[in-house]
Design a protein around this nucleic acid. Structure first.
Length: 275
DNA sequence: CGGCATGTTGCGCA
DNA sequence: TTGCGCAACATGCC
């Protein structure tokens, strides 16, 4: 599930469970632990105390009094908090056992597909450092985005570039572009500044909407109501045309060929859309 | 069985 | 230099 709202949700969960806690045990299956970790999770983390948990885009960072743990959820990664003696989770790849005062807890990292990453480092890793501004934490600077959009690249590829905006994934990009009627394949440079501005707003709105869904949910299995993501061949909720699908920047992109044409078939003046 | 998947990275090529 | 297509990663699910 992990896009920005999911990672933010997990960040808050880790923050509640970890800040001020001491790591008393840590382990991983090794396959998930890549990057600069050489001594394994345990050697690097046990004995450390958690100062803070941060998120930037889809990356999480657990800052300890010594060193840091970076976590990326990939496609199917997730963290849950369990009792210290709880059974191993299905697809559990790593765990952190912590103590805070007299209470104990065990954080389990699950990831069936193993695309996620856990990296221990002393300083910020390049993947974290090179991320662009976070739409939720930093907002979206329309001037900067418009500047990055002076390109022939498809607009969808631009907003999903983690160095342009950190945390926009396929779902948010697909939904936001549909909201503001911009064709995901549109060369970014074809968009007017006002269109970039409305896209920025739509992305923030979608992030907040999805975050609210998570905050309200009783358990981890909520369902986002999405307008067109994953709905190719269904009718467009806005105009009823059949939703199409294209591959943009290597990712499947649902779009409405009739009402989502800004940047590819938008007209000059008069507000008519081509058909 | 085949096809698809919310992400990232690297390579070859135009 | 820029950007694109494609494959790979490892596995579940429909």
């Amino acid at each position: 599930m992990p896009e920005l709202p999911d990672v933010e949700f997990i960040k808050q969960r880790l923050e509640r469970a970890l800040v001020g806690a001491k790591i008393v045990a840590a382990s991983s299956d090794g396959q998930t632990l890549r990057g600069r970790a050489t001594g394994g999770l345990a050697r690097a983390l046990v004995g450390g105390e958690v100062r803070a948990v941060a998120r930037r885009g889809k990356w999480l960072m657990v800052a300890l009094d010594r060193g840091r743990l970076f976590s990326h959820l990939g496609m199917t990664g997730w963290w849950v908090v369990r009792d210290i003696d709880a059974a191993t989770e299905r697809f559990e790849r790593a765990r952190l056992d912590v103590a805070r005062g007299r209470s104990r807890a065990s954080l389990r990292y699950t990831d069936p597909r193993r695309f996620g990453r856990l990296v221990v480092a002393n300083d910020e890793i390049a993947e974290w450092r090179e991320l662009g501004p976070d739409p939720l934490a930093d907002g979206i600077d329309v001037d900067r985005l418009a500047d990055r959009a002076r390109s022939t690249r498809a607009i969808k590829a631009v907003i999903m570039d983690q160095a342009v905006l950190a945390g926009i994934g396929n779902i948010i990009a697909t939904e936001a572009l549909w909201r503001v009627r911009i064709d995901p394949r549109a060369p970014a440079r074809k968009l007017a500044r006002a269109e970039i501005a409305s896209l920025a707003r739509a992305m923030k709105d979608e992030i907040r909407r999805e975050l609210a869904t998570r905050a309200k949910a009783k358990s981890d299995d909520w369902t986002d109501r999405l307008a067109i993501y994953g709905r190719a061949a269904e009718p467009c909720p806005r105009c009823g045309a059949v939703i199409a699908s294209a591959v943009v920047g290597g990712r499947t992109s649902a779009y409405c060929p009739k009402c989502q044409t800004i940047g590819t078939r938008a007209t000059r003046r008069g507000g008519q859309t081509g058909s």
